[in-house]
Design a protein around this nucleic acid. Structure first.
Lengths: 165, 165
DNA sequence: TTTAATTCGTTTCAAATGCAACGATGAGTC
DNA sequence: GACTCATCGTTGCATTTGAAACGAATTAAA
């Protein structure tokens, strides 16, 4: 009976294993040196790129649940890496941005993150990596077409100077 | 200043997002219909392939922390999908295996899992997928060489008939 | 304007998580 | 055997998690 199902050949599992391994290795960099969690790391990086944003914006851009973002931002504010000021026009919104300390923390971490990614990328040819990326995109598209699949996070666009909160 | 770091281009993040999305979609199948968690799903599949195994074996094969495996197995036993009998020779070990109900549950789920994977794979050519797999392997190897990275899970080998607990 | 419906961020609460420690068993050494 | 050390699975416990509910603020509809 053709019942054999090999977990280690199963695509979702394989991706999960590699991803968890990679994330855990990366978290050593920002965790041990700065005591940051994955969520906090993502928030910082997003802010570095997008400037002044709302909780909602972070939520939709970095694939984190809203409460998780809220808590991560709260903690980052406690640590002093982030500023949180009430929205001007819309008082529901909160305007979040990097503090100088936050920028400095990122300066300390980003190079290591880059190095780590580079080390990974260098294990394959750039052509292979490009094809690899294309496959990732195709897999996303396959999920996009599946009504049961959760939505794909938005692209983290640099906010246009006038488009900021 | 070349400080721009684009999260959505960052390999670990990209893998995490795709993986989370895929796992979440998949969990709809076994979660909604059978009330299973990711850990429980992995345990069942591993048992289906490897027969009679210990907690330790599951732990090293399916990339789950030991307590998580222990609890997943305990719950699966409560539900009746799994048998748990004390080890014969070594009384520390526990021999875990699928019950008939567990096998039937898998019969209900595995086809859907296969379909889902097939749907994903069909979005790229088989050649592209093979290259993709090769890159995954190379990335694992890069992590293998990194002393800070967590170990890669063991391959889930079908236990030789005589090698079982 | 008043009312209803939405959106934003936070909080609540129950469940999941994972590290560390534990008791129990087994293996190695003397 | 007695003693130490390692391994197995479980449990304690503090933290994290996320779905749902919430109040506040805004928008849409009546």
């Amino acid at each position: 009976m053709s019942e054999d199902f090999i977990l280690s050949d199963f695509l979702p599992y394989r991706l999960a294993v590699l991803s968890e391994r990679m994330s855990r290795r990366l978290s050593v960099e920002y965790g041990r040196t700065h005591g940051l969690s994955v969520a906090e790391w993502r928030v910082l990086v997003h802010l570095q790129r997008c400037g002044q944003v709302s909780i909602r914006d972070i939520h939709t851009c970095v694939n984190l649940e809203k409460p998780r973002v809220s808590r991560a931002v709260a903690r980052l504010e406690d640590i002093g890496l982030v500023r949180k000021i009430p929205g001007e026009t819309d008082k529901r919104l909160v305007s979040i941005s990097l503090s100088r300390e936050g920028q400095e923390a990122l300066h300390g971490i980003l190079p290591k993150a880059r190095d780590f990614e580079l080390q990974l990328k260098q294990s394959v040819t750039s052509d292979d990596f490009a094809r690899f990326s294309a496959v990732l995109e195709r897999l996303h598209e396959a999920l996009d077409a599946d009504p049961e699949a959760p939505p794909r996070p938005s692209i983290d666009r640099q906010a246009a100077p006038k488009d900021r909160i």
